[in-house]
Computed example of a mutant assay.
Amino acid sequence: MIEVRPADRFDDVAVLLGPKKNPDASVCWCLSHRLDSKTNTSLTGPARGEYVRDLCGRDTAPGVLAYLGPEPVGWAGVAPRRDLPIARSRVVPTVDAQPVWSIFCIRVRPGYRGQGVARELVEGAVGLARDHGAPAVEAVPVDNSAEKVNLTMAFVGFRSLFEQAGFVKVADTTSVAGGFPRIVMRRQLD
């Protein structure tokens, strides 16, 4: 049974997002779409993990984690859209003035894919946003028409995943990931 909880345990977040072999590596840590470019670039090596450690200690978790038993197996980054670089994007439109939250990253560990973890992560991210007063949640997945997507670019999610979770397309974008167009999808909560 998959359980989804707020990502407030740094050690579990590190299992999903941290460097696997070299602790000094400058891996993403799911900061590339959370921080402005200048701040993101300025954080290197262990400073990236320390930034995420700080995020995990705040009142609002930086996302959600999926567990199978005690094992963290999936991550979804979610935050108020206004706090993310996407709010200033020239390629992803702002649909309206609602203070929506945005799911900007989904990651499922190898060996646990194809078991419904991503679907549970989306529901957990929606729940976190709802618990913090969001009127709606958006995502900008690829519209891949069931074609295979390079796993490196799959972190944005797929249209079908979000449709299954009750999201509907609300806008086109000029953004592309893995050769596929991305679309804005939304799930109203109120």
Results as ranks from 00 to 15, higher is better:
Pro110Arg: 02
Thr39Gln: 11
Phe162Asp: 05
Phe10Ser: 10
Arg58Asp: 14
Gly45Arg: 01
Leu189Tyr: 09
Lys148Asp: 15
Asp24Phe: 12
Ser42Thr: 05
Ser145Tyr: 02
Gly127Met: 01
Ala87Ile: 03
Asp190Phe: 05
Leu84Val: 07
Val64His: 10
Arg186Glu: 00
Ala129Cys: 02
Tyr112Gly: 00
Ala76Phe: 03
Gly127Pro: 00
Tyr51Ser: 07
Phe104Tyr: 15
Cys28Asp: 15
Asn40Cys: 11
Gly57Trp: 08
Lys169Asn: 01
Ala7Thr: 07
Pro141Thr: 10
Gly127Gln: 08
Gln98Ile: 04
Gly179Phe: 07
Leu189Asn: 10
Ser32Phe: 13
Pro99Cys: 00
Phe180His: 14
Glu50Tyr: 06
Val27Gln: 10
Ala47Leu: 13
Pro80Asn: 00
Leu31Ile: 06
Cys30His: 05
Val15Glu: 14
Gly74Thr: 12
Lys38Gln: 10
Gly45Ser: 03
Val52Asp: 00
Asp96Glu: 07
Tyr112Asp: 00
Ser102Asn: 12
Val149Lys: 08
Pro6Asn: 05
Leu16Trp: 13
Arg90Gln: 11
Val117Lys: 02
Val142Ser: 02
Val117Asp: 02
Thr152Trp: 06
Gly116Ile: 09
Asp54Leu: 08
Ala79Pro: 00
Pro70Ile: 11
Arg113Ile: 04
Phe104Asp: 04
Arg187Gln: 13
Pro19Trp: 09
Gly133His: 05
Leu17Thr: 04
Ala177Tyr: 12
Val176Glu: 15
Leu84Asp: 07
Gly114Lys: 03
Pro70Arg: 14
Leu84Thr: 05
Ser42Lys: 12
Asn150Val: 13
Gly49Cys: 02
Phe155Ser: 10
Tyr67Ser: 08
Ala118Thr: 01
Pro72Trp: 12
Arg88Cys: 09
Gly57Ile: 08
Pro6Lys: 01
Asp11Gln: 10
Arg9Tyr: 09
Ala97Leu: 05
Val100Leu: 02
Ile106Pro: 01
Val15Cys: 11
Arg107Phe: 04
Met185Ile: 12
Gly157Tyr: 05
Pro72Met: 14
Pro70Asp: 15
Gln98Leu: 14
Val4Thr: 05
Ala61Asp: 07
Pro62Arg: 06
Arg88Lys: 14
Asp12Glu: 15
Leu31Asn: 00
Ser32Lys: 07
Thr152Met: 09
Ala87Glu: 06
Leu65Ser: 02
Val4Ile: 09
Pro19Glu: 10
Pro181Thr: 13
Val52Gly: 04
Val122Asn: 09
Asp8Gln: 14
Phe10Arg: 09
Asp8Val: 10
Asp190Gln: 04
Ala146Asn: 15
Gly133Glu: 10
Lys20Cys: 08
Thr94Lys: 08
Thr60Asp: 11
Leu16Lys: 11
Ala25Ser: 13
Ala47Thr: 11
Val64Lys: 11
Ala154Val: 08
Pro80Ser: 10
Leu189Gln: 09
Ala118Ile: 01
Val149Ala: 14
Glu138Asn: 03
Gly74Ser: 13
Val170Cys: 04
Gly49Ile: 07
Arg58Val: 09
Val95Ser: 09
Arg88Glu: 15
Ser175Lys: 11
Ala61Gly: 00
Gly114Cys: 03
Val156Ala: 13
Tyr51Gln: 11
Arg48Ala: 06
Cys30Phe: 03
Val13Gln: 02
Asp12Gly: 11
Arg119Met: 01
Ala97Cys: 03
Ser42Pro: 01
Arg186Lys: 03
Ser42Gly: 10
Asp96Asn: 13
Glu120Asp: 01
Gly116Pro: 06
